[in-house]
């Protein structure tokens, strides 16, 4: 591990942490435009986080230490995930310590902790949200893993930088299996980031909410961290998607010139991705909670099919 690659690693992590709320703001803005509303400021998520940090935290009497540490653990897990996913460069020393399977494990770690924290207070809403979150997770997590497996079958590696290297810096070839994987991945990321059609990030309607039900008891800095973490999660998922399906512009190891070009490329790609997400959210309707397994089951099976197609067509 050289100093340079270490610096790249830190730079990428810093960019992820800094840009994540911006991406959320951008998606909200696009969605408002598409729905003919006047859009909130692009920087609103930052202001919300800052406002929340200033407030006094209120913690329920029946809370255990799990409740208070969970925001930090979730945030930490998301930072780790951000350090693995190649968004700017593939020269990531930390990615050696954790590959694609560990990435899914980190997401699962965050999920389990947030679900436990939701059950900690002992209100009906918290447990309801926890149950639904785990319910969504048990299908989304395997589907995500299958998508990553498809990519790793193509590249012969489960390490994300190696996958991106194999996909981006190669002679032009079309991988039909990635079509399947792409559809499956889109479905999974919608579900995992609490988006329509599985969850609606902008309501607190008790019949439908998942993520909001879990964080209902949180306030102030804890809530700020959780919001930030979920923004980071969206950022991470976007970067995974970009890395697997549009890996162009990500700098290879030691390529400083490309690194300078990688940042605008990333922002450009994320902006497009945000518009696409807003489009999907505007065009689709929220599913009943028991249609969710159907939706995610479809994603899971498509991801499995991607592996099969990959074996049949050899790439």
């Amino acid at each position: 591990m050289t100093i340079a690659s270490f610096l790249t690693q830190l730079l990428e992590l810093a960019i992820a942490v800094a840009l994540a709320p911006l991406l959320v703001g951008w998606v909200n803005m696009c969605r408002a435009w598409l729905q003919n509303k006047s859009a909130p400021s692009l920087l609103l998520p930052y202001r919300t986080i800052r406002k929340l940090f200033m407030k006094d935290a209120v913690v329920a009497q029946s809370a255990s230490p799990i409740f208070r540490t969970t925001p930090y653990i979730v945030f930490g897990a998301m930072c780790c995930a951000a350090a693995i996913v190649p968004s700017l460069a593939t020269d990531l020393p930390f990615a050696q310590a954790a590959d694609a399977i560990a990435l899914v494990g980190l997401f699962a770690l965050a999920r389990v902790f947030i679900a436990l924290a939701a059950m900690d207070i002992g209100t009906a809403f918290g447990a309801l949200g926890a149950r639904r979150e785990m319910f969504v997770g048990f299908l989304a997590e395997p589907a995500l893993l299958m998508v990553l497996f498809t990519a790793s079958l193509i590249s012969g590696s489960t390490s994300l930088p190696t996958i991106v290297d194999a996909l981006a810096h190669r002679e032009l070839a079309i991988y039909p299996s990635l079509a399947f994987a792409g559809v499956a991945f889109t479905m999974v990321s919608l579900a995992e980031n609490a988006r329509i059609p599985i969850d609606n990030p902008s309501t607190h309607l008790e019949l439908t909410m998942i993520h909001e039900a879990m964080v209902l008891e949180y306030s102030a800095r804890h809530l700020a961290l959780l919001e930030w973490a979920s923004a980071l999660k969206l950022f991470n998922y976007s970067c995974i998607g970009l890395a697997l399906f549009f890996p162009f512009g990500i700098a290879a190891a030691g390529d400083w010139l490309a690194l300078i070009g990688a940042a605008p490329a990333l922002i450009f790609k994320l902006a497009i991705g945000g518009v696409a997400l807003a489009f999907i959210e505007t065009l689709s309707a929220k599913l009943r909670i028991f249609r969710a397994p159907e939706f995610l089951g479809t994603a899971f099976l498509l991801a499995v099919l991607a592996m099969l197609v990959n074996l049949l067509l050899g790439g």
Partner: peptide
């Protein structure tokens, strides 16, 4: 995949899309 002409790869992709649509 190397060595397979591009049009054949494109047909493979379309084949996959066909299957995808069949599943959809």
């Amino acid at each position: 995949m190397a060595g397979v002409p591009l049009y054949a790869q494109f047909i493979n992709l379309l084949a996959a899309i066909l299957l995808l649509l069949a599943f959809a």
